[in-house]
Amino acid sequence: MPDSKRAVQSGREVLDSTALEAIRSLQSDSAPRLLAQVVQIYLDSTPALIEQLRTGMRTSDHDAIRAAAHSLKSSSANLGANTFANLCRSVEMAARDGSMGPDVPAINVVEHEYAAVRHALEAELEAMG
């Protein structure tokens, strides 16, 4: 949890806990570990999307960038990773407009933020047991 604490300590919320709570509230006897499942799916699928984003940026494949950024934005927002989702949104817009200028967040910024999200989610998973 040091990453999670750090995020809080730095005054910047990595995860919006209300989003996780909303998902948790959907859990029932038929799906007691829904949140854990969703988080796990996120953690499993995100590295490949980031890899797609990286490759897209290297080859200036705007469609690939846009698609990957859209998915990352959507799935991240779903889990309340709003800062990361906003980053992805910026990338998606730029790719859609074809203006991948210097103000576009660099891939390492995206990766750095994801690392924070991942740490926070892993902490949540651990807490869930």
Partner: peptide, 15 residues
Amino acid sequence: DDLAMRLLIRQTLER
């Protein structure tokens, strides 16, 4: 196409 979304929607509607 997002498995997590399907899962969540299914759970919501089944309830």
